[in-house]
Design a protein around this nucleic acid. Structure first.
Length: 861
RNA sequence: GCCUAGGUGGUGGAAUUGGUAGACACCCGGGACUUAAAAUCCCGUGCCAGCAAUGGCGUGCGGGUUCGAGUCCCGCCCUAGGCACCA
């Protein structure tokens, strides 16, 4: 396979060493050049090594980095490791090998592979989320959230996976045909109530939604986040309960204008009022229904959404606008976790309510005029809910009003009656922030008895509400460690296996677990004294998201032991100017990171409110069969194998040539041949044989001129390639470079300056061969140090232009005309053409159209 | 069901604001060089008819706007991704 002329396996390591030794791509704090911070999503260093998706995004950012640096920017392009996580822990459970050790090996392997691709990171800024000097600050951020009242503890029914022995977030659970399964490993999962830390991301829902407006992100990603946050405006309406003066039912609705059409009220089965207001006659039936609902999760309930079911409570609510008595039901189509966990049902104007009312024979009252556009039977009653807005009917004094003004008027009325108000609701739920695992950041939290808690300095407590929970059957209160006790490291333990009851493996590390907390300083001692109180540590660890939520900040100041980041350094680099990574993180990572960044902004750690101004998603590379790459399919492409056979430059170029960066595209091993050929062609154009002697076609004195056409193409290429690089359009940049080399290889003499410009243009994508040829041409410094070529505008334009002749819009020939030709010249020239003449003969010329410098079109009949 | 992105040769994909559809490659066919192979170079390559010049058709399907539509509008079909009883 290997070609003796273009010896990439010798060239590539040489230049990789050169870049490292000379710090060619070092980012310099406070440098006077304009800064540019380009960020890659850092990888999880798995045991399997790089897959082909990594070099795709990373080549794009590396090329962009080299391009920007040549343009005169001070570029920061760092790399690190998102190294906490389940697979490493699973491996530890299986082998007994400490996760730290596995991580170290895997990181070394990943780093080596990245270097082989010619990716030049500023390794002095390398970070690792499992490094105590890194997670010290992850813990520090948690403490700030804790103190601000943005963290709380709750017993939550959560997904538990017996096989993995851990709790999973909703996002880590997949609904499959075999029921709920874990995303990792595809094991069955079940619901279990477990004590959890939760972060109040919902308090930032509005800010997270509004912040999207100013971001230069793909629209689809913004919409995804907006959808996820799911803001909806409406009203909270309060229904009195018949024969019950103490309680009221609060419902949320986006359609207060349909209030006169409410013919029943539904509570979620878990709603606290249910047991209180159920009539004796209905109690047995209701209890059975609740018991059944309990075994299903929200997701499972949603799964079975074909048929609605419910049970009447035998109690009645009073509609606040017309005092109408309507029945109260429970039904599992109402979710306790959204809104107030109760709804007013308006079957005429809501599909779900309509279906339910139909099943149980509940009255349907139409209150919005459909203008005869709704589906009705011959009696004129609705056969389907009419969900549009419109003019009100059957609504007493509101009749004739449109939905918008009726909503306002009805809410106003409810306010005067103390029976409702404007309300906003979000789909977004608070963030379940703990895992019962070993390999994660330990929480810097100590649990104390109430008595002891009262004696402790307030500096270690939340600003407002104390956090308490049942720990080993006793009520305990949470305090955090002082900053100087950080990082709180993981203890050594014998087994990484969680206990069968779902507790973290840390709960077995007794020495670490039981501590004595200094009431004033917060220091922790192994032995008690008169100033300490005894407590136990939190045994949960943080989820993998924690470390990846703020890593981009640490790259700016990775070795700072005193602060998360020096404010002056932060004000120089600010935030990444470009963030490249997969769309699979569109919601979770990118939302969590924005949340933390906004909190850090509020407490003055960072100067900008949003972390990622510009975002780009690289697409997925599929296997040759057009299917997702997977071991089981056997269609996985290993980057190392490709590098061995073709070299890193060919791999880089091919990955970028495959198609648009953002597209999902299949790998094609044969296609790589074309790119390999292209690089060999470039090599031969400059170098004649194995002795590295220059091809005599290279005019080293730059004395021979090239023809106008070639020169124009050169300048067009400079312009196009520059423009394409700027927009990450690497595939079209490469095809332009191919066109240019096809032209140059036809010339009898190529001025050295021309081939040098060519090498500069290709250097971001194929840096090794570019550096090698650049140096063989006699240059001493790195090609990346050269200022980026500029196109000469005057040389872009040709003296003659090609005019297309059309008859009735169909192409019928063309001709070259001088640039300064007139409209009449063009018409005359067109009429001279035989092909045009034959199309015109026997027909009447109706119209003559001329598009300057482009087209002549004759319309005939 | 809802939201989003797409649908262009045998294949991956090009195509500023509507202006030569198929750039650049891959595959395939033919030829040159070679004892042979690899490498390299040249020619052909959307489909149909034709020796050719040329003509007809052609960007998922059906309509429309326009001198002119891959591009704009209306209605469908299909694929991928996301959300999914959110009141």
């Amino acid at each position: 396979m290997q070609n003796s002329e273009y010896n990439f396996s010798k060239i590539e390591p040489k230049w990789q060493k050169y870049w490292a030794d000379n710090h060619t791509f070092k980012a310099i704090d406070f440098d006077s050049r304009p800064k540019f911070y380009i960020l890659d999503m850092f990888p999880y260093p798995s045991g399997a090594g790089l897959h082909i998706g990594h070099p795709e995004g990373y080549t794009a950012s590396d090329a962009y980095k080299r391009f920007k640096q040549s343009q005169g920017y001070n570029v920061l392009h760092p790399m690190g490791w998102d190294a906490f996580g389940l697979p490493t822990e699973q491996y530890a459970i299986k082998t007994g090998k400490h996760p730290e050790e596995t991580t170290r090996t895997n990181v070394e392997n990943f780093k080596e592979q990245l270097k082989q691709i010619g990716l030049c990171y500023d390794w002095e800024r390398e970070i690792n989320t499992t490094d105590p000097n890194y997670f010290k600050w992850t813990q520090w951020i948690f403490i700030q959230l804790f103190k601000k009242g943005l963290a709380y503890v709750e017993e939550k029914p959560v997904w538990f996976c017996p096989e993995l022995g851990t709790v999973l977030a909703n996002e880590e659970v997949l609904q499959t045909s075999e029921g709920a399964r874990s995303e990792r490993g595809n094991f069955p999962v079940e619901r279990r109530p477990i004590r959890q830390w939760v972060l109040s991301i919902t308090k930032f829902a509005d800010k997270l939604l509004k912040g999207l407006d100013d971001l230069d992100w793909p629209d689809s990603t913004k919409r995804l986040q907006a959808n996820w946050i799911g803001r909806s405006e409406g009203a909270q309406v309060s229904f009195a309960i018949e024969d019950n003066a103490n309680d009221r039912i609060e419902v949320f609705t986006t359609r207060p204008d349909t209030l006169f059409g409410a013919t029943y009220v539904v509570l979620a089965p878990e709603h606290p009022l249910v047991t209180k207001i159920t009539s004796d006659a209905q109690r047995e039936e209701v209890d059975t229904y609740i018991a059944k609902a309990k075994t299903k999760s929200d997701l499972e309930r949603a799964e079975l959404n074909k048929e609605k079911s419910g049970v009447p409570l035998g109690a009645y609510a009073i509609n606040p606008v017309n005092q109408k008595r309507i029945p109260i039901w429970i039904a599992d189509y109402v979710l306790v976790s959204y809104g107030t966990g109760a709804i007013m049902a308006v079957p005429a104007h809501d599909e779900r309510d309509f279906e339910f009312a139909n099943t149980y024979g509940i009255e349907v009252i139409q209150v919005i005029d459909d203008g005869d556009s709704a589906e009705k039977n011959e009696k004129g009653t609705l056969t389907k809910a009419y969900t549009q807005s419109g003019v009100l009917i059957n609504s007493e004094k509101y009749n004739g009003m449109d939905s918008v003004s009726a909503q306002k008027a009805i809410i106003q009325f409810l306010e005067t009656e103390n029976a409702g108000s404007i309300e906003v609701n979000y789909k977004l739920r608070d963030w379940l922030f703990s895992r019962q695992r070993y390999w994660g950041e330990p929480f810097p939290v100590i649990w104390l008895s109430f008595e002891d808690y009262q004696q402790v300095n307030d500096a270690f407590k939340p600003q407002n509400t104390a956090i308490h929970s049942q720990i080993n059957g006793e009520k305990r209160y949470a305090v955090v460690l002082p900053d100087r006790s950080l990082p709180l490291k993981l203890p050594s333990i014998e087994s990484y296996k969680p206990s069968p009851d779902g507790q973290s493996p840390l709960s077995k590390a007794e020495d670490w677990l039981n501590v004595h907390f200094h009431k004033e300083t917060g220091e922790v001692f192994a032995e008690s004294n008169e100033n300490t109180v005894s407590g136990t540590r939190e045994t949960n660890t943080m989820p993998q998201w924690a470390g990846s939520c703020w890593y981009y900040l640490r790259y700016m100041d990775p070795k700072n032991l005193e602060q998360l980041i020096d404010p002056e350094i932060e004000s120089y680099w600010k935030t990444p100017d470009l963030y490249i990574g997969g769309a699979e993180h569109a919601v979770l990572h990118l939302l969590y990171a924005r949340f933390w960044h906004q909190v850090l902004h509020e407490i003055g750690v960072v100067s900008e409110p949003e972390p990622f101004k510009k975002l780009f998603h690289q697409g997925i590379i599929l296997g040759e069969d057009g299917e997702k790459m997977s071991k089981s399919r056997g269609n996985v492409v290993n980057p190392e194998v490709i590098i061995d056979a073709y070299g890193a430059d060919t791999l880089r170029l091919y990955l970028m040539f495959l198609g648009p960066l953002e597209a999902m595209k299949p790998w094609n091993t044969k296609g790589i041949e074309g790119v390999a050929r292209f690089l060999r062609k470039l090599w031969r154009l400059v170098i004649l044989d194995n002795d590295n002697t220059l091809n005599p076609v290279i005019d080293t004195t730059n004395s021979k001129s090239i023809d106008d056409e070639s020169e124009r193409l050169l300048h067009q290429s400079i312009e196009k390639v520059t423009h394409d690089y700027e927009n990450l359009g690497f595939n079209t940049a490469i095809s332009q470079l191919m066109i240019l080399i096809n032209q140059l290889s036809k010339l009898e003499a190529i001025p050295q300056s021309v081939i040098e410009t060519y090498l500069q243009l290709i250097a971001p994508l194929a840096p090794h061969i570019a550096e090698e040829l650049w140096s063989l041409l006699g240059n001493k410094s790195s090609i990346s140090a050269q200022p980026w070529p500029k196109a000469d505008k005057e040389k872009l334009e040709a003296s003659a232009v090609k005019i297309i002749f059309q008859v009735n819009g169909k192409h019928r020939g063309d001709a070259l005309l001088p640039k300064d030709h007139t409209k009449e010249d063009a018409f005359n020239k067109a009429k001279e053409s035989e092909r045009v003449q034959s199309q015109l003969s026997g027909k009447t010329l109706v119209k003559e159209i001329y598009v300057p410098n482009k087209i002549v079109n004759f319309v005939v009949k």
